[in-house]
Design a protein around this nucleic acid. Structure first.
Length: 551
RNA sequence: UGGGUUAUGGUGUAAAGGUAGCACAACAGAUUUUGAUUCUGUUUGUCUAGGUUCGAAUCCUAGUAACCCAACCA
């Protein structure tokens, strides 16, 4: 089972570290901020961090980066945990940056005592002005040279709630002329009289990302702290703080976040889609959120396979949506139950079949024999797909057409004798004769058809609402187009129809996936009820005929 | 007039001086009681210009392009 696969750059680093004896096992962490729902981008990070400690000795912590109480909430904590579990990963410890608030405070005092941090009374505007720009150096704040005693006193009073929000900050004392903007006396603590989802009202000062993340990594003995590319400039500060505090040296490594074509992947933009009601909530099946994809019918296996296939690197990228669909179909093809449903019905009447007769036919349930068989009722009047009939057949057409024969899946071969149109030219009935000796499994008719179509017995059919989803955006990269990304929303991303389904589908359950023969993969939606079945289309089947038509 | 990161087919990703490979997509064909699946084959690539070398995606020099950094967000 030793399939040779080349290592990505992080695996290279880890194998080198392990080989050099730097570590005997590794510790990674997945550090979401509990201020929104997880999306496909997070899934890559999850697969990466948890995948690494599956492959190499060690473990992964789940750590909520909850240092900004005004945006964070327990609701998100719960959804994040549920999503990770659903993907099938297990964290070693459930931790919170807020668990370390006392330690972080002490670290800050330590820095002050070393003369490496100071309390600044400047306003946010003043700080911004003094910061300079990427091409111009900044200037020192006039509060930069306060004494250690004064700083200790002020910082303690900040903690005690003596000052209003924004009145003062604690800053590291590094270098206001540094070429790296993040080293120009970065803010370490700010005052926020806000209720925290875990620490309540214990604190009114909260550490900034840079003073919480690396220190939390260190406290947890994280060996490989993996984040996305935009944090590259933070690494210098990350290392500086660890060095000055003389704590466990965690190391930060950065990879390029994955982008998916025809969607957006930033929390901010996803939030807009929800707030402006372009979608129906975070778990709308069109959303690239984990919860949306779950509802849509994606399987954990397909998502993990996708993450694995696209790999990991440091360059800009937009992954083809079709690769995700490929991974999805591959998994679903092997696992989905088969059933028949007619989404756009037209009636087919078998003229030589007895009016009141019906019979029970059998059909395979899945991709192989292990799935067994099920019974499907057959009768004189059937629903078939409107698009499976062509009045004037195109070249290479081998479905139903006047005079043409086609196999009804798992049933009989029929020949179209005539069809009926209404006053608008819409075909309402297709009349066929069937060949009794062509019954599936005992066919001795000698007939042969190239086309096979699905059907549902009209008098036995159940009905269901079916939601057909398409890509959310009309363009590959909505964020890089001119104007607002919302201008590129696909107005036809959701189509709701009513379908006729075979009766066995009334027993469908929400944990199962179904292939509606020739139409795609579907799953029951959470809004489904006994009175009204609702199915989501997860993804269509590949359609070679549709391609033929395009030509 | 700064600093950092990155450039390999349409897309993603390998190749640590020695045959540019894999997957998706596209195209062609075979099989098929799902125009699905499966199978076979084909097309397409090393950012540019120089240099080193028997040999360069890889090393050197000079360019070019894209992305990130001036939130009391993470």
């Amino acid at each position: 089972m030793s399939e040779e696969k080349s290592l990505n750059f992080l695996e290279d680093i880890i194998e080198a570290d392990l080989a050099a004896g730097k570590y005997t096992s590794i510790v990674t962490r997945f550090p979401p901020e509990p201020n929104g729902y997880l999306h496909m981008g997070h899934a890559t990070a999850i697969c990466l961090n948890f995948g690494l400690t599956k492959k190499y000795p060690g473990y992964t912590n789940l750590r909520f980066d909850d240092t900004n109480p005004v945006t964070e909430d327990t609701e998100y904590v719960e959804s994040i945990k549920a999503d990770i579990k659903w993907l099938g990963f297990e964290w070693k410890n459930e931790l919170y940056a807020s668990d370390y608030f006392d330690e972080l405070y002490n670290y800050a005092v330590q820095l002050i005592k070393k003369g490496l941090a100071y309390v600044d009374d400047s306003t946010s505007e003043e700080i911004a002005t003094l910061k300079g720009t990427p091409t111009e150096p900044g200037k020192d704040s006039s509060y930069r040279n306060r004494s250690v005693e004064e700083n200790i006193d002020l910082f303690e009073r900040m903690k005690n709630g003596e000052f209003k929000d924004g009145a003062r900050t604690l800053r590291a004392k590094i270098d206001m002329a540094h070429t790296n903007m993040l080293m120009r006396d970065p803010l370490l603590y700010r005052i926020k009289h806000a209720h925290h989802h875990r620490t309540g009202d214990n604190w009114c000062i909260y550490p900034m990302y840079d003073f919480a993340h690396g220190q939390s990594d260190s406290i947890e003995n994280i060996t490989h702290s993996i984040c996305t590319l935009e944090f590259v400039p933070h690494r210098e500060l990350y290392d500086w703080l660890i060095e000055q505090l003389e704590i466990f040296p965690s190391h930060q490594y950065e990879f390029a976040r994955r982008n998916l074509s025809y969607t957006v992947m930033s929390k901010r933009k996803l939030l807009q889609l929800v707030n402006d009601h372009h979608v129906n909530g975070w778990d709308d099946p069109r959303m690239p959120t984990i919860s949306g994809m779950r509802r849509r019918g994606f399987t954990p296996a397909s998502i993990i396979k996708f993450c694995d296939t696209i790999g990991i690197a440091k360059r800009e990228n937009i992954v083809d949506f079709s690769l995700l669909e490929f991974c999805l179909r591959e998994d679903l093809n092997n696992t989905a139950l088969r059933a028949m449903a007619v989404l756009d019905p037209v009636k087919l009447i078998i003229t030589n079949y007895a009016d009141e007769a019906s019979e029970e036919l059998t059909s395979e349930n899945g991709p192989d024999e292990a799935y067994g068989q099920r019974i499907i009722p057959f009768s004189k009047e059937l629903w078939i797909e409107r698009e499976d009939f062509m009045e004037e057949p195109a070249k290479k057409w081998f479905r139903l057409a006047p005079g043409a024969m086609v196999r009804l899946k798992s049933a009989y071969i029929v020949r179209c004798d005539q069809f009926i149109k209404d006053e608008n030219g819409l075909i309402t009935e297709i009349h066929c004769t069937y060949f009794p000796e062509s019954k599936s499994g005992s066919d001795n008719s000698g007939l042969h058809t190239k086309g096979v179509i699905h059907w549902v017995s009209a008098k036995h059919a159940a009905t269901a609402e079916v939601r057909l989803y398409d890509r959310l955006f009309k363009v590959e990269n909505p964020s890089s187009e001119e104007g607002d990304f919302k201008d590129y929303i696909n107005p036809d991303s959701l189509q709701v129809i009513n379908a006729f389904i075979e009766p066995s589908l009334k027993e469908a359950t929400i944990d199962k996936r179904y292939q509606f023969l020739r139409k795609g993969y579907f799953c029951l939606d959470k809004e489904s009820s006994e009175d009204k079945l609702v199915f989501n289309r997860t993804v269509t089947l590949k359609d070679a005929w549709a391609k033929e038509v395009k030509k």
